[in-house]
């Protein structure tokens, strides 16, 4: 699959934003108030800013951005529509939570319920994003049970690292977030290893023979176009296995580095900042690979013997 930068940016930026928002909601619900007004405003601006920038980027890559509102209508069947609805519904609750959590509006009793609700909605949005990919049976590498958990743990790991880094920059105690961020990072690393094992060992049993019905000895003889067409550009891209292996190693090293820096940050807090930055780079690389390793079944019509 073609790794479109708008979609990579959207899923990584909004993923980190929703992860951060969920952790703000949960820690807010536990503490009952924000550590400081500055912290509340800054973290909310970063979380909602990342989410909004991601959503805007995903809207701008549409052929008809002015019709984007129509995407909210088909939530009965479409995970993309559900994602849109979840994203929109999260905003008012996140803003209401922000107002009471920061103390700008003094309703202490509302902090916990609004915080938990915001966290649930934020993670639901990430869940629907993962589902868009996980339910596409045409792409075996995406149609996996681990696709959605990896999206969720990536959101929590990158959101957690951001929370930690912002706390450090403001000279505050990161509280209960570090163990959550570290746990999410560990889970992410384990799930990703397992995921690669699954997609590498999945039988590539869809064949050109079944696609064309012309038997086992079929091969492509003539292409159906003068120059590369939309279907090939959009769905024909697959990264070479050799490159994929190298990029997986780089990604995993970045993950280990981020984990190591987070470990070091427990004694020298400043390390939380590079940890977050490295994790965001790792997220970007992982998302690029997720697309580039997605082999679409339509390639069988274009000369690929199995998928």
């Amino acid at each position: 699959m073609n790794p479109a930068y708008s979609v990579i940016f959207f899923t990584t930026a909004s993923g980190a934003g929703y992860g951060l928002l969920a952790l703000l909601g949960l820690t807010g619900a536990r503490m009952g108030h924000a550590p400081s007004l500055l912290f509340a405003i800054l973290t909310l601006i970063i979380a909602l800013g990342l989410i909004t920038a991601g959503l805007l980027s995903s809207t701008l890559h549409l052929g008809r951005p002015e019709r984007a509102w129509r995407a909210l209508s088909q939530w009965r069947t479409s995970w993309l529509s559900r994602e849109g609805v979840a994203a929109i519904v999260t905003y008012p609750f996140a803003l209401a939570f922000g107002l009471v959590w920061s103390g700008l509006v003094a309703i202490p009793d509302a902090v916990a319920p609004l915080g938990i609700l915001t966290a649930i909605l934020a993670l639901t949005t990430v869940f629907t994003t993962g589902k868009i990919y996980a339910t596409l049976t045409t792409i075996r590498a995406w149609n996996q049970p681990l696709t959605v958990p990896i999206y969720l743990f990536f959101a929590l790991a990158s959101g957690g690292a951001l929370h930690w880094a912002i706390s450090t920059i403001l000279g505050m105690e990161p509280g209960t977030v570090p163990p959550v961020a570290g746990f999410a990072l560990l889970m992410l690393a384990m799930l990703k290893l397992r995921y690669w094992g699954l997609i590498d060992n999945a039988p590539r049993d869809r064949t050109m023979a079944n696609a064309t019905g012309l038997g086992e000895h079929v091969r492509q003889w003539e292409v159906p176009h003068t120059s590369t067409n939309f279907v090939q550009r959009e769905m024909g891209f697959v990264v070479a296995r050799r490159h994929a292996q190298r990029l997986r190693k780089i990604f995993f090293l970045l993950l280990l580095l981020a984990g190591g820096l987070e470990g070091a940050a427990t004694s020298v807090p400043a390390f939380a900042v590079p940890a977050a930055l490295i994790l965001l780079i790792a997220a970007w690389l992982e998302r690029w690979l997720f697309f580039a390793e997605g082999e679409h079944v339509v390639t069988l019509f274009y000369g690929n013997p199995n998928a």
């Binding site: 008809r64 019709r67 984007a68 129509r70 868009i132 049976t137 939309f230 959009e234 769905m235 019509f301």
Partner: peptide, 27 residues
């Protein structure tokens, strides 16, 4: 008149039957 040109339908089709019209912005 209501397609937004998100291209997700082309991802869901195993047969490559849907193509994007750049000038029209729809599938």
């Amino acid at each position: 008149d209501t397609c937004i040109g998100c291209k997700l339908c082309s991802w869901a089709c195993p047969y490559g039957a849907r193509e994007y019209d750049v000038d029209h912005g729809v599938m």
